[in-house]
Simulated assay, not measured.
Amino acid sequence: MKQIELVPGIKSSVLGFGCAPIKGSEGNNKSARALSAAIDFGVTHFDIARSYGYGEAEAFVGKILRPYRKDIIIASKFGIKANNKAKLLAPLKPIIRFAKNLNGKSAAKPLTIQNNNVASLGNRFHSRIEINPFEMKKSLEESLKALKTDYLDYFFVHEPLYEIQDVAALFELAEELKKEGKIRAFGMAFMQNQKELHTNYLESFDILQFNNSPGILNYEDVKKDRSNKANIFFSPINGVENTLLPEEKLLKLNEDFPESVILCSMFNEKHLASNVKLFS
């Protein structure tokens, strides 16, 4: 598959695997098959977060990916975490998934996470943590332990809803973590409607990750500003452009942003194979 060097020395497959549904709307068996299939098809970029799977996804993903660690890219995030209520939800998740299969989308809503944006109902089971150096380092150590790895290729601030105070301290810590070999690059993951909160320091991050899809309101503005820059996109087919098929949206994103990685949550192996073929 085509490779993208988002940051010097770190190469990713142009198509990345979004792990948000793992241990949430998708169960163990289907998730394991999808991750293994992604690796077999040449996907090397895997996107995760402390909050995914109501706090359980990192450990699951780490176990599957550990044998391939030297050949893959792992990105995780801090800023949102599962709370104590999530532990109470854990035994109910298989039941809800079973109901989803019987009743369709209406039963799936309680477990729905749209890429790396926690769904409104899911917020009952998640808490936001302070964005400061102490919490950043603590969360990183938790992620490394869960993922069974010594380092992250990308470490993101996860969709803060307010302007970060003393952001310089975060960048200082990030440089220390790079020197220690615990992270390779430091980024910001955000929804585009949050961008105005962070304009003072966004370009100081090594990499930006945000929602982008043909047909969203400001697509042409983003294209003008960042078409030749390195980006990571999530929600790539959620734009209101109805004249394009999902695969056509992926191809357009790649054409308009040739230096970017596109994240997709690909749990249907036929869809995975089809998407990979677009960039092979």
Rank of each mutant, 00 (worst) to 15 (best):
126 H>C: 08
126 H>D: 08
126 H>P: 01
127 S>P: 01
127 S>F: 03
127 S>N: 15
128 R>S: 12
128 R>D: 05
128 R>A: 14
130 E>I: 03
130 E>A: 15
130 E>C: 06
131 I>E: 11
131 I>V: 13
131 I>D: 10
132 N>V: 03
132 N>L: 07
132 N>S: 11
133 P>E: 10
133 P>G: 06
134 F>C: 03
134 F>H: 09
134 F>P: 00
135 E>N: 14
135 E>Y: 05
135 E>K: 09
136 M>T: 04
137 K>V: 11
137 K>S: 13
138 K>T: 11
140 L>P: 00
140 L>C: 06
140 L>V: 00
141 E>I: 04
141 E>L: 13
141 E>K: 07
141 E>F: 06
142 E>P: 05
142 E>R: 10
142 E>Q: 12
142 E>V: 04
142 E>C: 07
142 E>S: 11
143 S>Q: 05
143 S>R: 00
143 S>D: 07
144 L>F: 08
144 L>A: 12
144 L>G: 09
145 K>Y: 10
145 K>T: 13
146 A>C: 03
147 L>V: 01
147 L>N: 06
147 L>M: 09
148 K>N: 15
150 D>Q: 13
150 D>V: 06
151 Y>A: 14
151 Y>N: 12
151 Y>L: 10
151 Y>S: 15
152 L>E: 11
153 D>H: 14
153 D>I: 02
153 D>F: 04
154 Y>Q: 07
154 Y>R: 07
155 F>T: 07
156 F>W: 07
157 V>H: 06
157 V>I: 15
157 V>R: 03
158 H>N: 07
158 H>R: 02
159 E>I: 02
159 E>L: 05
160 P>G: 09
160 P>D: 11
161 L>Q: 13
161 L>N: 13
161 L>A: 12
162 Y>S: 14
163 E>M: 08
164 I>V: 10
165 Q>H: 08
165 Q>L: 09
166 D>F: 05
166 D>R: 08
168 A>V: 02
168 A>N: 09
169 A>S: 15
169 A>H: 00
169 A>V: 00
170 L>Q: 02
170 L>P: 01
170 L>V: 02
171 F>C: 00
171 F>R: 03
173 L>D: 05
173 L>N: 00
174 A>Y: 01
178 K>S: 04
178 K>R: 13
178 K>Q: 11
179 K>F: 05
180 E>W: 00
180 E>N: 08
180 E>S: 12
180 E>R: 08
180 E>M: 11
